[in-house]
Design a protein around this nucleic acid. Structure first.
Length: 485
RNA sequence: GGCGACAUAGCCAAGUGGUAAGGCAGAGGUCUGCAAAACCUCCAUUCUCCGGUUCAAAUCCGGAUGUCGCCUCCA
């Protein structure tokens, strides 16, 4: 497959170095608060990459860390009067709740920063020994950025440009404003670990370098994360790891684009901030996941509840088609009438196109276009009396279901039982619209009675009443169903 | 100020040299007691603008305009 490599700013053919094994490291969360929709995007993107690589037959060693000690965690802990470790544990738990709802598969390894202090001390010592780092009197250890040739190669910056923006904060003992902390001496009251340089804790960038090296043979095949992490975090990881090992750190750098609100970056200060729970209070996880996949992973994605509602309609249409296919397959008698080869051929073409889209830098938006073509194809067969009753039609339906099963496993959607999912989706929409399903059923029963008596005036009056509640009635041979208009 | 990304229909969005996927919305039709859903048909001679390269450009190059991001913690 082809993947966009931030390091070279172009798409490149992806091949792992060790035969069939893919080593993939993705920066995980800092556990100090609930996850927001940006975390959802990043998680979904790399989950799809993980699923797709496995689908292609690779053995994927997927490492995703937890930053469980950090300034923000300490600050939060102080605010609520808890231990930093308790805060981290709490929000790691909340993280899993959100990830599970979004059908994010668990990575192969999920190392925590605090469980790898010895590895980080060792790496820091190595960097000091090789002249890439220095301790300060107050117990900090800094990485000497100018000692590392190639600093800036990922983010496309040169060191002198960076110099102009950097400054030394009061109290810091850096030799150069560009230098960054590998180890931070503990301030009074802060959690700490013993080190050769005194009590302290690791700097944020260090953990990813130390844990990558521990859980994978460097260089990594893929290193991923949000676009904002490319500088300085990923740049610093490269500096640390390459300075220490003398080997390239990662062959492919993959960065997902940002979630924006009204074309602006989401941030707490702007007040345009949504947690995953804010969304899932109103919409099904499937809807959010589908929405996130309708745009290419590198593009900025504008989030709004209106856009989510539009995505929801797409999800509904796909499941409606799958439910109809299931209904057809539930029949027992099949005719020997001929089934056009073109339809089977078209399905095969769509499967190829889907694969091509995924091969081309994980183009899920393009792939979903082909999914809809399959939906229309299914509709065409379901619509045709002869086709849907034929032996060939039955085989077509089975092949279509198999295709959806495969696509669903890659994208992490379409995996629910269609009829049950449609009811769940409708109830979700009804709850949002403030509709009482029991009241709807009452009116539906009354309407059914009127229809039985051919009292269409009364039947239509009831339907108007329902419509006023935003309930849309759909008469089928099996009785009336409803949805939110 | 430095670096970078993006600009495709009413809206969302694929498409990186061969003549504009898909979704939502909209129009007409089939079906229906009438509807709805589903299905069929239609809906960008054109890809922000101006130049250039090429037999051929939404795609490559140069310029302009606009939007956003990074340069500080950030998915």
């Amino acid at each position: 497959m082809r993947l966009y490599n931030t390091l070279h700013r172009k798409k490149e053919e992806f091949t792992p170095q060790h035969d069939n094994l893919v080593n993939m490291y993705v920066c995980g969360i800092t556990a100090y608060d609930l996850c927001h929709i940006g975390h959802a995007r990043s998680s979904v993107v790399f989950d799809v990459l993980f699923r797709y690589l496995k689908h292609k037959g690779y053995e994927v060693n997927f490492i995703r860390n937890f930053t469980d000690i950090d300034d923000k965690i300490i600050k939060r802990a102080a605010e609520v009067g808890k231990e930093a470790s308790a805060i981290a544990e709490q929000f790691i738990g909340e993280f899993y709740v959100d990830m599970d709802r979004l059908a994010i598969q668990r990575p192969s390894v999920e190392p925590k920063c605090t469980a790898h202090i010895p590895e980080m001390l060792k790496l820091t010592q190595e960097l000091i020994d090789k002249g890439y780092a220095y301790p300060t009197p107050s117990g900090d250890v800094y990485f000497k950025v100018r000692a590392f040739e190639g600093y800036g190669k990922l983010s496309g910056r040169n060191i002198d440009e960076l110099e102009s923006g950097a400054r030394i904060e009061p109290g810091e003992e850096k030799q150069d404003p560009l230098d960054f902390a590998l180890w931070k001496g503990a301030k009074p009251g802060e959690p700490f670990w013993e080190s050769p340089w005194g009590k302290g804790r690791p700097g944020w960038h260090l953990e990813c370098s130390a844990m990558s090296e521990k859980y994978a043979a460097l260089p990594l095949d893929i290193h991923g994360g949000g676009q904002d992490l490319s500088f300085p975090h990923h740049e610093n990881e490269i500096a640390q790891s390459e300075a220490a090992t003398g080997k390239p750190f990662a062959n492919f750098w993959v960065h997902n684009g940002f979630v924006q609100i009204n074309s602006e970056k989401m941030s707490k200060s702007l007040g345009n901030f949504f947690t995953i729970r804010d969304i899932l209070d109103k919409f099904l996880p499937e809807t959010l996941r589908y929405f996130l996949l309708t745009m290419h992973y590198r593009s900025p994605l504008d989030f709004s509840f209106d856009a989510l509602e539009e995505a929801e309609k797409g999800v509904r249409r796909i499941y409606a088609a799958l439910a109809q296919v299931d209904a057809e397959l539930a029949k027992t008698a099949w005719k020997k009438s001929p089934f056009p080869e073109e339809i089977d051929a078209e399905l095969a073409t769509l499967a190829t196109s889907f694969a091509e889209a995924m091969e081309d830098d994980l183009n899920t938006a393009g792939a979903l276009g082909h999914v809809f073509s399959a939906v229309r194809l299914a509709g065409r067969v379901c619509e045709d009396k002869n086709l849907r009753k034929s032996e060939g039609g039955r085989e077509f339906f089975l092949r279509l279901k198999a295709a959806f099963k495969e696509w669903g496993a890659i994208l992490g959607i379409f995996e629910h039982e269609p009829a049950a999912f449609l009811v769940e989706l409708r109830n979700n929409r009804a709850a949002r619209a403030g509709i009482d399903p029991a009241r709807v059923q009452e009116l539906l029963d009354a309407r059914q009675a009127a229809r039985k008596d051919k009292d269409f005036a009364r039947s239509d009056a009831i339907r108007d009443e329902l419509l006023a509640m935003r309930v849309e009635v759909n008469d089928t041979p099996q009785g009336a169903t409803w949805d939110v208009a």
